[in-house]
Design a protein around this nucleic acid. Structure first.
Lengths: 214, 214
DNA sequence: ATATAAAACAAACACTTGTTTGAAACATTT
DNA sequence: AAATGTTTCAAACAAGTGTTTGTTTTATAT
């Protein structure tokens, strides 16, 4: 009755292997043999390997961006048309990713990898899912930082994106540099540190800026 | 006389193709046919594909880290044993990468990709080249920020690393979000913005910290 | 010029890749 | 129970992978 369908089991295993070995480095036979089905199952259920990749991505990315938008709008509604704090904007942007990471660490590896992939095969599919939400947050940040030139704001958003993605994918590497014990997985505390760091970076005085109101 | 050896031409082309298509996605035949030599040339000169990859990396990474160390030590020598500014530390860490990027944008793509690659095949080779210099900068930062707990410092260094790498590899993506004209390549100005952003982030007050001396 | 070493070559090797095919097993509906 | 549609399977396909082999060309040294 409550069995998981083959289609969904393929998605789960593919997500895991994509994260562990990389997308290109994972063969369909790796996936299907781990699931325990025939190698043709992927082509049957998803049409092609690319179809499988798309399905793996969309399954997580859609709810993630919906949650981001939901949070941002709830904060903005609470401040009725007034500007909301940087911390709130950053929280709406970052917190859902950490929640998703806590529930499913593997997907974040995949997302981070696709974004930093110079082979832009997946870009035409991936970027449009980000465009809308990115512009939405850009608008929010422009209202919160009215004196910051657009170019500088975009650069700082790029820095934030990089810090966030890199934290997902490389947090565990820090263990070797720590003299004390190092928690194996990312927790709420890291979210706070990241938001804290980024908020300070966003508020950094812009060198060329004159007559700024603090 | 002044001809470029086959070995070096292979390195140049491999670097270009690795950056454009990815390492795993680039076949030896892609490289050798672009150079105009036989497909066995790579195995002859570098032993294997992995040998070629190692050679491509080391050629750029070694001078980069040497320059970073040189800058850091020159700053520290100028302050005779006193603490040096965050901006100086960050400059020693970031500026050489941008200089390398200006001279050779392609390598930075490769480096960024290897770091964010979940397939850790290249890690045992790549990370040791970073370990020493990373610890060196960690020490410098700990002296400049004596009140910051080690864990928080390491996290912030991770954020900085991510911002830097992501800027190398994804700067051009910002064009689509800019309403005005967007310079195609990264210039000195971006370095300054990055250092500015990271310095502010490093100096962010740590929530759990009490009795801090500014 | 001749011997010796280095470099480049064509051709094949064994292997893996994503995909397709046609038949078998299963489930559902009539 | 028979017919229909869905899912799974074994087997093969064509194309591409890194690597090895033995030979030929080129350069260097005696």
């Amino acid at each position: 009755m409550n069995e998981i369908s083959t289609k969904e089991r393929i998605l789960d295993v593919a997500e895991r292997l994509f994260a562990e070995k990389g997308i290109k480095e994972t063969s369909l036979r790796d996936i299907t043999s781990a699931v325990g089905v025939n190698c043709a199952a992927v082509n049957y259920h998803f049409g092609s390997k690319e179809g499988l990749i798309h399905a793996v991505i969309t399954r997580r990315l859609k709810p993630l961006n919906q949650e981001r938008l939901r949070l941002l709008e709830s904060y903005e509604a609470g401040a009725d048309n007034g500007p909301i704090s940087l911390e709130q904007i950053l929280h709406a942007w970052i917190a859902p990713t950490i929640e998703l990471y806590l529930r499913n660490p593997r997907f974040m590896y995949i997302a981070g990898r696709i974004i930093s992939d110079p082979n832009k095969e997946l870009y035409p599919f991936f970027v449009p899912q980000f465009e809308q939400i990115f512009l939405r947050f850009k608008d929010s940040l422009m209202r919160a930082l009215p004196n910051l030139p657009e170019r500088e704001l975009l650069l700082r958003m790029l820095f934030i994106l990089g810090a966030m993605i890199h934290t997902w994918t490389n947090y565990s590497d820090l263990e070797r540099f720590s003299s004390g014990p190092w928690p194996q997985t990312i927790g709420e505390e890291v979210t706070e540190s990241l938001i804290n760091f980024c908020a300070a970076g966003l508020q950094a005085p812009f060198p060329m800026q004159i007559g700024e109101t603090p």
